[in-house]
Amino acid sequence: MLRKAFITMCVSLFCLITFSSSASEMVNVYSYRQPFLVEPLFEQFTKQSGVKVNVVFAKKGMAERLAREGKYSPADILLTTDISRLIELRDKDLVQPVNSSILSHAIPTQYQAQDNTWFALTTRVRNIYSAKRLGRIDLNYEDLADEKYKGRVCTRSGKHPYNVALVASMVSEHGEAYTLNWLKKVKKNLARKPQGSDRGQVQAIHQKLCDISLGNSYYFGKMLNDKKQKVWADEVYINFPNQNNRGAHINISGVAMAKYAPNAKNAQALMEFLVSKPAQELYAKTNMEYPVREDVAVSKLVASWGNYNVDDLALEEIAKHRKTALKLLDQAQFDL
């Protein structure tokens, strides 16, 4: 009797799960981007098109999950926070090209794949934050290894995709040997073991544990808008590195369509929505990111940080050096 009841319960549960989500018009998103960043956009999209957006969010492992699921994966769209992840998806044959003139016209060519397998939505700079107490300073990424910053540098884990991408750009610029040496020297300059988030580093500067840190641009805006974190952000300047040479390292947040997307039409509609002017404006305004569309302005706050030069290294190059970067980080024992 007990057993029967239990079995019925299980079966009905599965039915509930599997069939409730198969409502007619929808699109399924696997997202590396945090929900609160993208949810306003999805709401807007649903309002416009009537297509429901389902999201699973995780900081890690979504691509691996997609790979495991293979042909029967429900995923239509992947949102990533990093170029390397997009390239990896393509290299593993998990995504499909999307031929859309809307997409290809809206996005500058350097920010989309030649084979249309991925598209950038926003760009972000890997900034160097510096304590206001140091005054205005001009920094290159290479300067983080300078001995005068001994014990004064903070960063999150070297293995975080943002840092890996930066290291990969260093490999591309200077080669492996130089980069390893650079990493070792930066490691020596660290005030503490790599830990926490980009925001946590700014907090550490506020706490006077260190003077300079690495962090993405939009966090600065986010922190200025948070009542607890504003005091941290008020302690630092945001700097755009390498302005007198190759330019600041940038990364993108991007989108790709899953190879076996069951709702390809809706997926394409969502992708096109994400590069539409209103969506791009939302990205700029609420997320403090740099919209990928050149005809959409950044938010006032972001604009106040000034213009900057961008490292024109092809994004694919960064992805190519990703694994090397990881190995170098291990070799330098950066996180230990």
């Binding site: 799960i17 945090q34 929900p35 389902n54 699973v56 969010f57 900081k59 925001r199 607890k228």
Partner: peptide
């Protein structure tokens, strides 16, 4: 997690990792 599924612990963990 399946789609649109957050639990208390996963939510708290995300907030913690953003220092929030």
């Amino acid at each position: 997690r399946p789609f649109n599924f957050e639990t208390l612990s996963s939510q708290i963990y995300q907030l913690i990792s953003n220092e929030m």
